[in-house]
Amino acid sequence: MNVLVIVLFLSAFLLTRVTILRTAVIVLLLQSLAVAAACVVLGLETSQFHMYLAALLTIIIKAGYIPAALFKIVGRLRREREQNPILSPNYTSLTAALAIVLAYGLIDQALPGVVTRNALAAAIALLLIGLLIIMVRRQAVMQIVGLITMENGIYLLGLSVVKGLPLVIEFGVFLDILVAAVVLVILTYRLKISFLSTDTTQLRKLKG
């Protein structure tokens, strides 16, 4: 489990540094696979069948369909890349590190001596870093990546707090993220068509 937590931290750090959209999607895919692996590990520990089902769903949706859709759109956006982001990658990484410190601090304050300390901290760190990526990146695809990262964080939080949610809720969560990803991909296409660029700072023009 700790290996997986390290992989998640690593993926989050990588996301703060990449500027090429395709690389970002690959990192996201790896991150989702790590979350799926965490599900399997928990399934082995608690021997609950539906954890495997959750892992399967994670692989299908977060490591399968969503990255595929993102790869497809990235293929069309050959010229797009993260140029002069709002916060440079170095500072972003530094902020991400601060976020991890904050996450550990939060866990130690709120739940001192909890068994799944590392997993919980990783979950909160993923949440904060996802938010950070949405905040400091201009490209729409990068923002989708940030959103899925946040979603992975929330999912991991659910896993490590209560050892897995009821299956119905997990279905709901997956449906939610699926719909969100579909809508966002469509909107990114529209952005490309309307503004000839997927730079979200263009949206400033919509203000009345």
Binding site: I134, T201, R204, L206
Partner: peptide
């Protein structure tokens, strides 16, 4: 209300933290 998506997310992040 600047119209910047990033800034709106920033407000959210600030409140969350």
């Amino acid at each position: 209300q600047t119209g910047s998506v990033q800034l709106y997310i920033g407000y959210l992040a600030a409140v969350t933290i």
